[in-house]
């Protein structure tokens, strides 16, 4: 059984000016342990698709099973519980709470899971260690760089040990080197067994996935497996490359 099973999934928005078909009877499966990039220009339906598999939205037609659970039958509280237990979100704008430190930010999903404080603290520190930020646990988001903030966000997404990590343009707000670091982190996590779905419009990001699904006009345009580019290797190469000025000379 695949982790994600989507069958004839549709999402139609009713507007005053008529209805818009954002997603038109899409069917696909994503296996546990995969690293998938979902691509497409804006309006292609990729964001709608992400919202649906992220249980943030409900389909207007079709079926969606996440880890065996028929999502369309769940109540709003049921969806919240599913997001809490089985999904981890990473956003372009990080979306950290500015008033509390990194550790408290990472604890947030466990707060809603009803874990007690001691366990929360332990697990949050472990998750921060996993993304390489153990020493920054008590910094506030404002005291961290963009790349570090995104790592905190990833730690937060991982802390409840979700079945699926869902990243929406995770490198969109970062410079290219930091973006590579984040992609390398995703690849590392994937090697450890975490299923990752990255939604992006950036082909450079998509190169690092094992599977690329392209959307256009609410349909799947293509669905290909590929040999992923190695972000860690690219970083090493970057560190040893001569400065650009010397090459020009």
């Amino acid at each position: 059984m695949a982790l994600i099973e989507v069958h004839e999934l549709s999402r139609i928005y009713s507007l005053d000016s008529g209805s818009v078909i954002a997603l038109d009877r899409v069917s696909l499966e994503i296996e546990a342990g995969d690293l998938v990039a979902v691509m497409g220009p804006s309006g292609s339906g990729k964001s709608t698709f992400m919202n649906l598999i992220g249980c943030l939205d409900r389909p207007t037609g079709g079926h969606y099973r996440l880890d065996g659970v028929a999502v369309e039958t769940l109540s709003s509280d049921g969806l919240a519980e599913l997001r809490n237990r089985k999904l981890g979100f990473v956003f372009q704008q990080f979306n950290l709470l500015p008033r509390v430190d990194a550790c408290a930010n990472v604890e947030l999903p466990m707060v809603y899971a009803g874990r007690d404080r001691k366990i929360r603290r332990e697990k949050a520190l472990a998750a921060l260690g996993r993304v390489g930020l153990a020493e920054r646990a008590h910094h506030r988001p404002m005291q961290l760089s963009g790349g570090q903030q995104q790592r905190v966000a990833i730690a937060r997404a991982l802390v409840n040990e979700p079945r699926l990590l869902l990243a929406d343009e995770p490198t969109g707000a970062l410079d290219s080197r930091t973006a590579l670091e984040i992609l390398a982190l995703f690849q590392d996590l994937n090697h450890e067994g975490v299923t990752v779905v990255i939604v992006t419009h950036d082909a450079e990001v998509a190169r690092h996935a094992r599977r690329v699904i392209r959307f256009r006009d609410g349909h799947i345009l293509s669905d290909q497996r590929q040999e992923p580019a190695d972000a860690r290797a690219a970083l090493t190469a970057l560190d040893h490359a001569p400065p650009a000025a010397e090459v020009a000379a």
Partner: peptide
């Protein structure tokens, strides 16, 4: 609003 959106995304129920 964004904070609320985030809380909902990480599993807060409406009543939370």
């Amino acid at each position: 609003t964004r904070e609320i959106g985030l809380r909902l995304a990480v599993g807060a129920r409406q009543r939370d």
